[in-house]
Amino acid sequence: MGEVIVITSGKGGVGKTTTSANLGTGFALQGKKVVLVDADIGLRNLDVVMGLENRIVYDLVDVTDGNCRLKQALIRDKRYESLYLLPAAQTRDKNAVTPEQMKQLCDELKQDFDFVIIDCPAGIEQGFKNAIAGADRAIIVTTPEVSAVRDADRIIGLLESEGKHNPKLIVNRIRPHMVKKGDMMSIDDIIEILAIDLLGIIPEDDYIVVSTNRGEPAVVNPISQASTAYKNIVRRLMGENIPLMIIEDNTSFFNKLKKIFNL
């Protein structure tokens, strides 16, 4: 019996889809059988980030409507055998699926996979309710901005009222030089407000843009800092005890110099 993890944030653009893709691929790298479920019906993106857009024949709504069997809609990743994607429908909207149907779907997927990762849409409406319906646990993604933290706080409250306790936090897109100067919220500031367990921190990394456009999750690249951070999170989710990474400040002159000479 697998575990259903929902990746949510409330605010849009904080990195839910990127996190879903990277955690999913990370689990597959660890030899786990994983399925990524895109719950963002009408605004699907996960297929593009995974580079699987041209393989879509059936989607999530086809499954819940009974147009096809679940296995027909699952797309196997082109890089990893144990990684699958269940794409969202693009021409429908969030109301095409009910929370009950999503719960049933998750229960079915749980039978066959070690991890079911659900990419939640932004917002707190129907799409959010659908995405969390079948989840065993939740991961909240936020960025060090007051707006994102406030939305994350709202989401934690909503999850609690749905009986989903102890969500874990990922702080994404940290720029250490800005934190140092006091221009950005620090991890401690965020934890103080949200008061939930920290699962990991991801540094701002230009490579994420490259990987998204290429349709190849960043964890595949061993050099990227974000890749290491995601790999650490995967191992923590699997029960290992990994210390938080110390994010290098790549922007200072000395560090740039260090990088050039590969020190």
Binding site: R55, V57, Y58, D62, N67, C68, Q72
Partner: peptide
């Protein structure tokens, strides 16, 4: 060529 079923 993709061996799969047509969407109905």
């Amino acid at each position: 060529i993709y061996v799969t079923c047509k969407k109905t």
